[in-house]
Simulated scan of single mutants.
Amino acid sequence: GDRTRRKTACVTGGNGYIASALVKMLLEKGYAVKTTVRNPDDMEKNSHLKDLQALGPLEILRADLDQEGSFDGAVAGCDYAFLVAAPVNLYAENPEKDVIEPAVHGTLNVMRSCVRAGTVRRVVLTSSAAAVSSRPLQGDGHVLDEESWSDVEFLRSRKNGTWVAQAYSVSKVLVEKAACAFAEENGVSLVTVCPAVTVGEAPAANDLTSVGTILSLLSGDDAYAGALEHIERATGSIPMVHIDDVCRAEIFVAEEEAASGRYIVCGLNPTVVEIARFLAAKYPQYKVNTDRFRDFPEKPRVCISSAKLVKEGFEYKYNNLDGIYGSVVEYGRALGILPY
Score class of each variant (00 low, 15 high):
Leu52Asp: 00
Leu52Met: 11
Gln53Thr: 12
Gln53Val: 01
Ala54Trp: 02
Ala54Thr: 15
Leu55Ser: 03
Gly56Glu: 09
Pro57Asp: 05
Pro57His: 08
Leu58Cys: 04
Leu58Tyr: 05
Glu59Gly: 11
Ile60Asp: 14
Ile60His: 14
Ile60Asn: 14
Leu61Lys: 13
Leu61Trp: 07
Arg62Asp: 03
Asp64Met: 04
Asp64Gln: 08
Leu65Met: 11
Leu65Ser: 03
Gln67His: 08
Gln67Cys: 03
Glu68Gln: 09
Gly69Leu: 00
Gly69His: 02
Ser70Asn: 05
Ser70Ala: 11
Phe71His: 05
Gly73Tyr: 04
Ala74Met: 11
Val75Met: 12
Gly77Phe: 02
Cys78Val: 13
Cys78Pro: 12
Cys78Lys: 09
Cys78Arg: 08
Cys78Leu: 08
Asp79Thr: 04
Asp79Glu: 12
Asp79His: 15
Asp79Met: 08
Ala81Ile: 01
Phe82His: 02
Leu83Tyr: 04
Val84Ser: 15
Val84Phe: 05
Val84Lys: 07
Val84Pro: 05
Val84His: 01
Ala85Lys: 07
Ala85Val: 09
Ala86His: 14
Pro87Trp: 03
Val88Phe: 15
Val88Lys: 09
Val88Ile: 15
Val88Trp: 11
Asn89Lys: 15
Asn89Glu: 05
Leu90Asn: 02
Ala92Gln: 06
Ala92Asp: 02
Ala92Lys: 10
Glu93Ala: 15
Asn94Phe: 01
Pro95Phe: 08
Pro95Cys: 11
Pro95Trp: 14
Glu96Ala: 11
Lys97Thr: 02
Lys97Met: 06
Asp98Leu: 07
Asp98Tyr: 09
Val99Cys: 10
Ile100Ala: 06
Glu101Trp: 01
Glu101His: 08
Glu101Phe: 03
Val104Leu: 11
Val104Thr: 12
Val104His: 12
His105Lys: 15
His105Cys: 08
Gly106Gln: 04
Gly106Glu: 04
Gly106Arg: 02
Gly106Tyr: 04
Thr107Asn: 10
Thr107Glu: 02
Leu108Ala: 06
Leu108Cys: 00
Asn109Ser: 07
Asn109Thr: 08
Val110Gly: 07
Val110Ile: 14
Val110Lys: 01
Ser113Thr: 07
Cys114Gly: 06
Val115Met: 03
Val115Pro: 01
Arg116Gly: 00
Gly118Arg: 12
Thr119His: 06
Thr119Asp: 04
Arg121Gln: 15
Arg121Lys: 15
Arg121Glu: 14
Arg122Ser: 13
Arg122Tyr: 10
Arg122Asn: 11
Val123Tyr: 03
Val124Asp: 13
Leu125Val: 08
Leu125Gly: 08
Thr126Cys: 05
Thr126Asp: 00
Ser127Thr: 11
Ser127Pro: 11
Ser127Lys: 13
Ser127Asn: 10
Ser127Ala: 14
Ser128Glu: 06
